[in-house]
Design a protein around this nucleic acid. Sequence first.
DNA 1: GGCGCGAGTGAGAACGTGCTCAACAGAGGG
DNA 2: CCCTCTGTTGAGCACGTTCTCACTCGCGCC
Lengths: 356, 356
Amino acid sequence: MLPDVQASVPAQGSSIFDVAREAGVSRATAARALGGYGSVSEDARRRVEAAAERLGYSVNSVARSMVTGQTMTLGALIADISNPFFARVIRGFTDGARSAGYDVVLVNTDETVYTEIHGLKLLTEKRVDGILVAPASEEVGEHLAIAIERGQALVQVDRYIPGLDTDVVVVNNYESGYQAVQRVIAAGHTRIAAPILRTKGGDGHANLISTMHERHQGYRDAMTEAGLAVPQAYTPGAHGRSEVRTAVAEMLGRPDRPTAVFGLDDSFTLGIIDAVYSRELLVPDQVSIFGFDDTEWTTVVRPPLSVIAQPAYDLGARAAQALLRRIQTPDRPRQTHVLPTTWIERGSIRDLARQA
Amino acid sequence: MLPDVQASVPAQGSSIFDVAREAGVSRATAARALGGYGSVSEDARRRVEAAAERLGYSVNSVARSMVTGQTMTLGALIADISNPFFARVIRGFTDGARSAGYDVVLVNTDETVYTEIHGLKLLTEKRVDGILVAPASEEVGEHLAIAIERGQALVQVDRYIPGLDTDVVVVNNYESGYQAVQRVIAAGHTRIAAPILRTKGGDGHANLISTMHERHQGYRDAMTEAGLAVPQAYTPGAHGRSEVRTAVAEMLGRPDRPTAVFGLDDSFTLGIIDAVYSRELLVPDQVSIFGFDDTEWTTVVRPPLSVIAQPAYDLGARAAQALLRRIQTPDRPRQTHVLPTTWIERGSIRDLARQA
DNA sequence: GGCGCGAGTGAGAACGTGCTCAACAGAGGG
DNA sequence: CCCTCTGTTGAGCACGTTCTCACTCGCGCC
């Protein structure tokens, strides 16, 4: 590794000044030739392009951003990219962003408001042109309100903070939960359980997430309207798959155990299945299961799982679309996009009505 | 929406110049007070901080990057973030990056060299300080070689291009595949199949991915050394879950059908299970299954799946670590980090030997 | 032959920050 | 009393790009 050889390679990429000198023109002409604006003679254009090729010139987006005032970058503030649901949302978001020439910076919040605030600060400093956020709490949103006031383009996805003036892209969580539970009730079930997510903020107090909230309210209303009880034992708070497993296993050991359990999200459904197996109960003969979100594995469990499928990719793609429109037209009225879910009946719910 | 109200809010965030004027000091003093360098009187520091707070000042990272020459941003060029394996890798990578003050820009390549080249160009223009790449092809890597020559810090993860002079973070794919197949052979199986991934580049010719390549070679060698045949019918090329399903279903319909099928990655294993179900075969009594990568669903299928678990999160975290070290010390010798896999025996492999 | 016009070109400002340099005041020692 | 040293401050350059402005030159028209 001779130092001479290294020195022959420009440590930092060459600037448009180097290209101009190489081509024997001024910076302005080189910039015009490469930027495709103004008027440049055919001869000069060829010389500049050849020089750029020879020097391996690459536009410095940082400098461009200084001038144009836009970074062509979007930020994404989500709970956890290793959660397959968010991974699909982000895939849709990056695809939508990319097709308009934008890149995406990813920040995980782990459902923690403190991390969300910190991440928002970082993205603001990076001067991203817009931010996608799945708020960690439906109660604490002052940081987001301030960002909006300062003109930051923002879109909420999957969840939303009531009263926060942004575009929102969600599914009809309440209706989906309500209708699914109605279906299960129609199948003759009267004891239906639905554990609910309880996340903890940095300060130790529980965050409420609108998504969970609404799905659970749909469940409650469907039960109540059918004249069915919702005992507290059927709605334990849990923090993740293993806590759900524990809570549901306990519940299934009781004499008045539920005949059906509703998984409010992917990880909850997994925990419920874990619990059912640990009790060695048969699905759907001894206990029925249905879940929210149709992930890849729902067809490889036996019986295949009946679920409320939600268009995760489309959520992200629509959010990108909404965000890009807001960037282009900051004063447009805010919109809430509610994407439809699909009930997929597969076979994990026992029909007690027909059997009776 | 009165225009006056809007005008009262600064459209673009205030600069350090505004803070300096508000505090009654020069730009330089304000910069010193906020940047924490040089010496500033206690009085001036307080006034500057108060002014910054009042104006809601936020550092402009773009301008800072112009001066410092670093963006504190890393790029990630991976196949598909909605693939749970990569999602976990990226989670590890972002965590590692974040703890050192770096953000991550995400680019999906869809296993396409053309998209990878384009993504590399974008990341270069954005002047990211380092790039994580899971190369789409183990054959086409000239674009990456050029980037390295220009001084771009690069780390390859999950796969690698032979001869490309970068840090590499992988698992011992060959050994893992070899040993797993050896185990299955020891359990008395002689007809073991392993479909292999064939992705297509933008130009239509097949990409070889080192990961798949090595796992499959491990399988082949274990078979050959045990004196077992590897008929071409046992190693069909497929492009994803549904193609694997079709290929394996066909294979399982033959009279000389395999007694065990090896899923070289997560999506392949899903396709294999699909095929087994479509043939209504019992696992492990009629056919054994084992896979690569231990995802969340492997414990909710019946029987639970025996797999080679790989530390996806750690792959990403170690890659971040390696990349950050290279950024700090560009001339350090390149290292290849091989992370261990773990064989998890669960019950999807029938022991023919003990039974005989 | 003078004039206008358009194409092509170069000089230079601007973006907001980090950092160097010089200037200045005040304290302290010889 | 002068010199030095230290703490504090402001002026100004640099980063690489985009874009505006003014200038030159050649051509065609009156």
